[in-house]
Amino acid sequence: MSEEEFEYAMREMAAGNADALKQVYLAYRTLIYTVCLKYLRQREQAEDVASEFFIKLFNSAGTFKANGHHKTWICTIAKNMCLDLMRKEGHVAASLDDTPDEDGQALEKADPASVGASSVEESTVNKLTIEEARKRLSDKEREVMDMKCSGLTFREIADITGMPQGTVSWHYNEAVKKLKRFIGYG
């Protein structure tokens, strides 16, 4: 969704047009859910917060002021909502590297060195689906890939995550390499 389209949708939402909200939802439901899941690590909570986000977006559309970076804006709002929830519930922000995946199960770490060094493992993961391959990415690689595939630029991902743009780009390239290898195209 372009800036103009988003601004138009917000104006429509401010006027009470729910169809505009639906358009925004369809465009960003994945992105917002991904952001929420990144922080909350629980699918249900992520879904709840993502829903709440769109409700509030609709209700406060009249106060929207275009700043030319609506993707960053909505991601920041979603992130703040997650942080607020974590604060209220006394959650401690966990390191991305030692947190379980969204299913609550320990995610096998995709150590680039070990993966790259083991041809046996490569052959084993050769038949992985993209879903399985995605789970084998490191948290940061998956985070970057999720946002990138949701339509964000490296610059926007860097702004949201706080990582340097070069790091974002590096994680993306690593993720793409792994995915290619995991699904048998590497």
């Binding site: 439901r29 699918r43 829903s51 890939m145 995915l179």
Partner: peptide, 16 residues
Amino acid sequence: YMESLKADVPDYWSKI
């Protein structure tokens, strides 16, 4: 990846 991601994201429009 995007297809996989979207498939992984639930439809929560009803909640909204």
